[in-house]
Amino acid sequence: MSAEIVNLRQARKHKQRQTREKTAESNRQKFGRTKAEREADRRRRDMHEKQVDGHKLDGPATTPPGDN
């Protein structure tokens, strides 16, 4: 007739941890990206930035006021 003694605080924390882990796992599946996907995006972004920077025009040469 001996019953297992359960610390309710620890049991509550354990259940909360399990719930958070389930949520985290589902989020990883929904929103996670592989390293290859992140690298491809980074390379694509760098290429676009380089292209935009190469097409920038320099502004007109301005002379300081009073040098006319």
Rank of each mutant, 00 (worst) to 15 (best):
R28Q: 09
R28V: 05
Q10K: 08
E37Y: 01
G59D: 11
E25Y: 03
F31G: 03
H14E: 15
R17G: 02
R28N: 10
M1F: 05
S2I: 09
P64G: 13
I5C: 06
R42D: 10
N68V: 14
T62S: 14
D46P: 03
A24G: 07
D46R: 07
H55F: 11
Q16A: 12
D53P: 03
Q18H: 06
S26G: 03
E25C: 01
K50R: 15
T23F: 05
A36S: 07
P60Y: 00
E25W: 01
E21M: 00
A36H: 02
A40P: 00
G54N: 14
G59P: 08
R42W: 07
T19A: 03
R45A: 12
K35T: 15
K56E: 07
D46M: 04
M47W: 09
T19Y: 02
Q16E: 13
E49Y: 02
N68A: 13
R44Q: 10
R9N: 12
A61N: 11
M47C: 06
T23S: 11
Q51F: 12
I5S: 06
A11F: 00
R45D: 09
R9P: 01
A36M: 01
R42A: 11
N7I: 01
G66K: 05
E49N: 10
T34W: 03
K22V: 00
T63P: 02
T63D: 11
Q51A: 15
H55N: 15
Q51E: 15
K15Q: 12
F31P: 01
R33C: 04
Q18C: 06
L8I: 08
N7L: 03
A61I: 13
N7C: 06
S2V: 09
G66L: 06
N7T: 00
R28I: 06
R20E: 04
E49Q: 06
R45G: 02
T34D: 02
K50T: 14
R43T: 14
R45I: 10
G66W: 02
G32F: 00
D58C: 08
G54D: 12
K56P: 02
T62W: 10
P65M: 09
R44E: 15
R44K: 13
E25A: 08
Q16H: 06
H48F: 11
Q16R: 10
R28K: 11
R12K: 13
E25R: 04
V52Y: 04
A24K: 07
D53R: 13
R45W: 07
